[in-house]
Amino acid sequence: MKPTSVETPSGKPPRRKLREHSELTQRIVSALVLVGIALPLIWLGGIATWIMAAALFALCLYEWRLMTAGAGASIAALGLAYCGLTFTLPIIRDALLPDGLFLLILLFLAVIASDVFAYFSGRAIGGPKLMPSVSPNKTISGALGGLVGAVVVASVYAAIVPQVTVMTAAVGAAVLAVFSQAGDLFESGMKRRFNVKDSSQLIPGHGGFLDRVDGLLGASIPMLVYVVLTT
């Protein structure tokens, strides 16, 4: 007779639930460490932000090459362009002084909020998958939750700082959330194509740097377009 597994009230075996809590704790701690490193560099701007972008570019490109080992020149060129989006961060920071700092913080807030709200709403609500052939765990409810979360957080931020209206921040955050999720899906598709789970194991609980900044790289595109059009 096979032993039956004991389940928690939520229906999940205790070991699985403990593993999920452990992974979530690792994700939170790692995220706080990364934010703690990035924020002072973003605040300083100038050479500090360029150094951050260069270091991030090198790490992301290293992981891209690990992830796509054996691929052709076209994939290598795609990785170079994709990872090169890290340099949009210092451009955004310094192009519109003094508003560049505000815009970069808004970018980070929208991406983080989209990721966090998508994670929790997707797990809580579930439902139809967003793009199961690319990322089997992502749901439509998660995508919508991420978009709403980004809009709410950006609106609160705009209500505190004077640089932009709440409506403008809300619309901008919605666009950033869509591009952030597209960046996430792009990297998920690449990992699925090359049959890897994470871009690396450099960040405990997070995988690799590409796994953490894929949404940021995607969202940096519309923000860079905005900066170019308004300078």
Rank of each mutant, 00 (worst) to 15 (best):
A73C: 05
L224P: 00
S10D: 15
S135G: 13
L106F: 04
S121T: 15
R27M: 09
E23H: 10
F57N: 12
G122V: 05
T25A: 12
L34S: 14
L44S: 13
V161E: 08
K191A: 06
A38V: 11
G45W: 05
A31R: 00
I91K: 02
V171P: 01
D99G: 01
T68N: 04
P14S: 07
L103G: 07
A31D: 11
S133N: 11
P9M: 14
G11D: 10
F179H: 04
V227G: 00
P3I: 11
R16Y: 02
G142A: 08
A150H: 00
F102S: 04
P128H: 08
I47G: 04
D99C: 01
T168M: 06
D214E: 12
A219K: 01
G126V: 12
L32D: 09
P222C: 12
D184L: 06
V134R: 00
L224S: 12
S180M: 04
T49H: 03
T139C: 03
H21V: 09
A95T: 09
G215E: 13
L32N: 08
Y62P: 08
L107P: 00
A81T: 10
L106A: 12
G127Y: 07
H206V: 03
G208R: 00
L202C: 10
R123H: 09
L104E: 11
R27P: 06
K17P: 00
I125H: 04
A113H: 01
L185V: 15
E23Y: 14
A55S: 15
S199E: 14
V6W: 15
G127F: 13
T25C: 08
L85M: 08
A170M: 13
L80N: 08
G127S: 14
T230V: 08
I91L: 14
P13N: 13
L78R: 01
A48L: 08
R65Q: 13
V225D: 05
R19H: 14
R192W: 14
A95P: 15
A177H: 06
D115A: 13
M190E: 03
P98K: 04
G122S: 09
G122A: 06
D99L: 09
S200H: 08
G183P: 01
P13G: 15
M131Y: 08
R192M: 11
G172F: 15
V156Y: 11
G149A: 03
V35R: 11
F117D: 03
P14Q: 10
T88N: 04
A73H: 03
